[in-house]
Design a protein around this nucleic acid. Structure first.
Length: 455
DNA sequence: TTTTGAGTTGTTCGA
DNA sequence: GTCGAACAACTCAAA
């Protein structure tokens, strides 16, 4: 009897270092490569996310010799249908740990579809790193140590002479979504991922510890979208790192991604829910005009506005900027973190639920290892410190292009500062910082009330 | 079980 | 301008 396997491409749009793909090719005389496109999700995604995914799928299809099947729908409907139409004898995939993927797996299992899972998008699969007593870590540093001790397998090579099934024309719905006119979308795909990584090794990695915090220079790896879609596997990256301190700082960033995936795995409600539940009771402001100003990059705080505009024109934002704008939304505008997280998810091409939700919760003070409550980012100080010459701001906020150097951080102090179309500050930071601290005092006090008197 | 040390990313204030 | 201390208390991990 003939064997034909199905490989379900999910967040692993690559051929190299893909053990699940090797398992699929081993299991069949030929193999159908399938990506399942949920158009409902795509509909709700921002333009850059869509364009990036389309680009990545085209790259993958080319690498497969034009044999990538793409079918629209939900995995729980598409996969059983494909199994019967192509007479599939075994199904293979990497395991997912994000809420959507986990739901797909459960729905397929319920229908009795047997999937052989091999590996995950992490060096160490979520749930594997445990304390000696078997429970999960809730603090990063001990997690990191245990993760290092746990270790991970070496990368594996791309398949040699794979035999893929030619899909029917009706299963070739590879979208042609384009990025918005004038936007600057990062190149997607496995080849681009390796090009990015190699150029980062050559010119960025050894100074990563110093340069990664300066949004105005290209000091970061730009690997986040590639990791998001699995165009490169983290263990491929880890295998190239040495023991130097710059490399160690970068390794720790990879570990943060793994830590947050582990936390989300153990507390699945924290994708949109509070990790620290007492913060739910805090007084927040409804997102209104100020929230819109934040989204549009019109808060009157140059570093915040530059960052928010970078997000909209590139589908990406520097990590330092993410913290600054997140702090501003939560602590200066008193808007709940979920509104900001959702805006990020729509625009970011590296939109990862675990990293995004927990990054936001860290800033908001309600996450794991959260920032102390009294730590409120000062957008002017952050600008002066991390964009000292204002290069980053001038790149994204042309209204301030006429201001030299450090003058750019406080345009309201200059006589003609507001005469070039730049907006006035929507709030006063010093005032809102105190307001934020006062609201935090309220939930601290509330915690001490007996349960029947709590709000 | 108890104890102890530690904990991504900062700001402000006063000397 | 620079520097160190204060900003709290709590939870977590590990001995």
């Amino acid at each position: 009897m003939a064997t034909r396997s199905l490989f379900w491409f999910r967040r692993d749009l690559r051929l190299q270092d893909n053990p699940a793909l090797l398992a699929a090719l081993d299991a069949g005389e030929d193999c159908l490569a399938l990506f399942v496109m949920d158009l409902d999700i795509a509909e709700r995604s921002g333009p850059y996310r869509r364009a990036y995914l389309a680009d990545s799928l085209h790259e993958l299809d080319a690498a497969l010799g034009g044999k990538l099947a793409v079918s629209n729908g939900r995995a729980s409907e598409v996969i059983p249908d494909v199994i019967s139409r192509y007479e599939i004898t075994s199904v293979h995939a990497a395991q997912s740990f994000a809420p959507y993927g986990v739901a797909d797996e459960a729905a397929l299992a319920q229908q009795g579809i047997d999937i052989e899972f091999t590996g995950s998008g992490y060096a160490v699969a979520p749930g594997r790193v445990r304390k000696p007593d078997g429970t999960n870590y809730r603090v990063y540093t001990p997690f990191f140590r245990a993760w290092m001790t746990h270790g991970w397998r070496a990368p594996v090579a791309a398949p040699k002479a794979p035999k893929f099934v030619t899909p029917k024309a009706s299963d070739r719905s590879i979208p042609d979504w384009q990025s918005p006119v004038g936007g600057a979308l990062q190149k997607a795909g496995e080849a681009a991922a390796h090009t990015s990584f190699e150029s980062f090794i050559k010119s960025g990695l050894d100074s990563y510890d110093v340069n990664r915090n300066i949004p105005g220079i290209a000091g970061t790896s730009r690997l986040s979208p590639h990791l998001r879609w699995g165009e490169i596997h983290p263990r491929t990256i880890l295998s190239k790192l040495n023991q130097s301190s710059a490399h160690e700082v970068f390794r720790k960033e990879i570990a943060w991604r793994e830590f947050y995936a582990d936390v989300l795995h153990h507390y699945p409600h924290t994708d949109t829910g509070y990790y620290a539940p007492q913060y739910e009771a805090m007084r927040y402001d409804e997102p209104g005009a100020k929230f819109i100003a934040w989204k549009e990059g019109k808060t009157g705080y140059p570093i915040v506005d530059a960052a928010m505009r970078q997000l909209v024109v590139e589908g990406w934002m520097h990590n330092r900027s993410r913290m600054i704008v997140a702090s501003f939304l939560v602590k200066d505008l008193h808007v709940e973190w979920q509104h900001g997280a959702s805006h990020f998810m729509n625009y970011l091409i590296d939109n990862d639920v675990a990293s995004n939700s927990h990054g936001w919760q860290w800033t908001a003070g309600c996450g794991t290892d959260a920032s102390p409550y009294y730590r409120v980012f000062n957008p002017v100080e952050q600008g002066k410190r991390f964009d000292p010459d204002g290069d980053y701001i001038r790149k994204y906020v042309p209204e301030l292009g006429h201001l030299p150097g450090a003058d750019i951080h406080e345009p309201w102090t200059l006589l003609d500062g507001l005469s070039h179309g730049y907006c006035e500050r929507i709030v006063d930071h010093a005032t809102e910082r105190l307001e934020s601290l006062a609201r935090l005092e309220e939930i601290k006090a509330a915690k001490e009330l007996p349960p029947n008197q709590r709000a």
